[in-house]
């Protein structure tokens, strides 16, 4: 093979990945590069000066409060992911077992709340969880409580409720798609061979739906780490996540370098978390929902 034909062959192989590669370059690599550059600039009362300094990183690591809020964010995201999974799996199983028009209606109902904005979906919980909200009103009216429960809103609990609600679809859909593709004969064969329903689920259904589970978990976890609106609206003083601290630096505080340094830290910690999970279950499974 001549050098010319080898180059042509190499070019032909590269061509299909060019659009994806360009997309990644423009929307992921370049912004991340700018983020790193900005984190090394200086914030002054007159705005940002392109003078190199490690001051923002010194600020982030000098006080444990920033690292702690990142760790807290990872914890909240992890718990939200687990709760989403527990809620979404039965829902996905239910949808997978439905047939015909009923299935279409339930899928439509699942999508319906997502036609409204993220903000509205988060805001919805205020009149439900509030001190004078629906739940407290019902509990007091029923005589279960004599005073409203304050912990329902403006607390970590409310953040979990909000995050699970707004990201349910991202967990339910991949699991549903995994379950929907399963051949029902597999479950029937396992039952015929004496497997009890729990055993059939644990040894046949669950392992075969794991690609969807991992996909859903990855999406919900990553979306939760970057959450800003939900903790801001529902979290109060104890449900603040790192997204709120970062937004504050870019908006009111005008300290873009510190905001950028915190963003780099979060991205770094997410990469470490996902890599560790990937080592356990396989990156292909984690991101593509495929077997190892």
């Amino acid at each position: 093979m001549t050098a010319r034909s080898a180059a042509r062959s190499f070019g032909a192989e590269l061509l299909p990945i060019l659009p994806g590669g360009l997309w990644l370059l423009v929307f992921a690599v370049v912004p991340f590069f700018f983020l790193i550059v900005m984190s090394l600039w200086t914030a002054t009362v007159f705005g940002i000066e392109p003078e190199w300094t490690l001051e923002s990183y010194r600020t982030v690591f000098a006080d444990p409060v920033y690292v702690l809020i990142v760790l807290k964010t990872l914890r909240i995201s992890l718990v939200s992911t687990v709760i989403s999974l527990l809620v979404s799996y039965p829902l996905a199983m239910f949808l997978a077992r439905m047939q015909g028009r009923a299935k279409a209606m339930f899928l439509f109902a699942l999508f319906l709340p997502f036609w409204s904005s993220y903000l509205v979906r988060s805001f919805t919980w205020l009149p439900i969880l509030g001190r004078n909200g629906l739940i407290n009103h019902a509990l007091i009216s029923a005589g279960v409580m004599s005073a409203p429960i304050d912990a329902l809103l403006f607390d970590e609990f409310a953040v979990y409720v909000g995050l699970v609600y707004v990201y349910t679809l991202f967990m339910t859909l991949p699991i549903y798609l995994s379950l929907d593709r399963l051949d029902p004969a597999l479950g029937e064969a396992a039952s015929d061979l004496g497997g009890r329903p729990v055993q059939v689920f644990r040894r046949v259904t669950l392992p075969l739906s794991l690609p969807g589970v991992w996909s859903g978990c990855t999406m919900v976890f990553l979306l939760s780490v970057g959450a800003y609106v939900t903790p801001s609206l529902l979290g109060g003083t104890s449900g603040i996540m790192v997204g709120n601290v970062i937004a504050g630096q870019f908006l009111e505080s005008n300290n873009w370098p510190l905001g950028a340094a915190l963003s780099v830290l979060v991205i770094g910690m997410v990469i470490v978390s996902v890599t560790l999970a990937g080592m356990r279950v396989g990156l292909r499974q984690l991101f593509l929902g495929q077997g190892r």
């Binding site: 600020t59 409060v65 603040i240 510190l258």
Partner: peptide, 18 residues
């Protein structure tokens, strides 16, 4: 405008995050 504005902002961030 505080003379040490960055310290103020950093302190408020800590208050919120604490």
């Amino acid at each position: 405008l505080p003379t040490a504005l960055n310290v103020w902002i950093e302190t408020w961030s800590k208050v919120k995050s604490a």
